[in-house]
Structure formats: structure tokens, C-alpha cells
Design a protein around this nucleic acid. Sequence first.
DNA 1: TTCATATATTCAAGTTTGTGCACATAATAT
DNA 2: ATATTATGTGCACAAACTTGAATATATGAA
Lengths: 139, 139
Amino acid sequence: MELYIEQFKALGDKTRLAIIWLLNSVPGDLCVCEITDAIGESHCNISRHLKILKGAKLVKEKKEGRWVYFDLAKPQDQVQGYIMQALATIPADAFLEMAARLQLRLSLRDGNRCVDGVKSNNWRRVVNKVNGKNDINEK
Amino acid sequence: MELYIEQFKALGDKTRLAIIWLLNSVPGDLCVCEITDAIGESHCNISRHLKILKGAKLVKEKKEGRWVYFDLAKPQDQVQGYIMQALATIPADAFLEMAARLQLRLSLRDGNRCVDGVKSNNWRRVVNKVNGKNDINEK
DNA sequence: TTCATATATTCAAGTTTGTGCACATAATAT
DNA sequence: ATATTATGTGCACAAACTTGAATATATGAA
């Protein structure tokens, strides 16, 4: 019961729902800095939100040296199973720009692993290149 | 998107989750005062929580004179469908006492409609009678 | 070792939320 | 009309939440 409340509370936030949606949009896991650049918020904020999601057992983390990868957690019971299904069903409408930024960010990976920190030079370069063609990531 | 956030936020509260559970535990609808007596909080608080749930389109209301009945809302899309399924799956464990109070409260109905206000004399009477036998509703 | 970097945490605002109290509204009864 | 009753709302305040800035931790590189 307490866990359900914690889970619903964790999901009642724009940034955290965005994180969940990002994790649903890829087959594997995502690095903290990839999530940060895709959403475009400060890294400390993303870190905090990830901690809340982890506390609610909605995501699980895997450490690889300095990098920390997050993925959706396996449902602990039937209730959470339905919650995860609901989350997987959320349409892309409100997340199109963010989804494009994530794909761009994932193109920087090497051997399917993240090799760029938050707001790296590589990231700035590809963003600028894409911005020259269309207005992705434009405010 | 905003609606999903509002729905998750609405569900991230102990009292509101209790209200949803009560509505799931009966085939029909429930009167405000029945919900209030079953949960055992102040009527104004229950009223406010119901307003929040209604704003999130999780419950719908039906007015009958002075009495206002609430019921679970029909899902507006597939996401809410899964959310409602999750809610319907929440186990009774944490709500046993409350469920017993609701059944007792519903026994006061006349013609399947509520005829007693919050903390009525009838309610006090049946609660005292039951308390004489076991410790339901005991603090 | 020292430095750089990915991530986490502490602190201090500012904001939101939950609740008790009193009062307001609306519908019924007398 | 007045009284009663079921429900809703405004106010005030405490608790919880969100966030930016700075700082800390931890891992790897040189």
C-alpha cells in the first residue's frame, strides 16, 4: 500500500514521467548523462528524480565505472504490472522533441555504451549541426 | 500528458487511494457521507479529496437532491484503462477495517440509497453494537 | 600522486499540498 | 418563511516537495 502511494507520487511529476517515457522508448538502458541531455534539465535534478524513481522501485540502476545506467524495473506484483503497462502506453505526442534529442544523443555512443558526459563538446557539436538544418532542440 | 500527471498525483495520497479502493469494493456508487464514515476522516476533507479525484477524471459524481453519489469514471483512453486495472487489483490487506465499516454503513441504506448523514445516530448505534461484540472500528 | 569527470548530496529559498476550523451553499422538511 | 441537513469552500498554517548553487564522492586518466 505504502509502495503504491510512493509509486503514484513518483509518477505525478513531469520530469519523472519523461524519464520513464525515455526508458520505454529504447530497448536497453540509458546513462544518466544521456537522460539529462535528452530532457535538457540540470544533472543534479535528473539525479534526484532518478533517486525518487528508484526508491519507488520503478527503475533499477546498474553501475559501470563512472557511468550509471538506468532501466525500467520488473514489476513486483500485478498492480505494478498494470502501472508499467499504462506507462508503456503513454503516447509520444508530448515527447517528440525529447525523443529526437535522445536519438541524437544515442548516436554518440561507442559500442552501445555512453562515452560522453553531460553537455559534452561532442553533444554541442551534433546539436549545432542538426540545428543548422531544422529547429530540433530549439526554444 | 498533463492529465496523466494529474491522475498519478491524485493517486499518490493515502486517503484518495482509500476512496478509490472503496469504490472498487462495491458494485454501485457511494454517497459522500458513506465514504466519510467508512474512512473516518472529516467530511470537508473527504469532499476536497473527491474534488481532486473528479478533477483528474478518476471518479464521476451524480447528484440526488442533497445527496451526492460518486463512482469510478470510465477510462478515457488505454493508459487510463491500465491505471484503472491497477487500482482494481490493489489487495484488500491494508483496507480490511475500512471495508468492514463500509459494509456496516451500507446496511443502513433504505432501498439501496443512503438515508443517513455523516456520523448520524443510526451510524453511532450500529457501530456501538458491533463494538460490543468485536473490536471493529477500534482505535 | 594529481587532475578531470560522472554522479550524488547538502543547503537554502520558493512552491505546493494536506488539514482543521469556520462559514457558505443547496436542498428538504416543517 | 425558518430550520435542518448534506455537501462544498475560504483561510491559515504546517509539512512536504522542487530546484539551483555549491560542494562532495567516486572512478579513471595522466
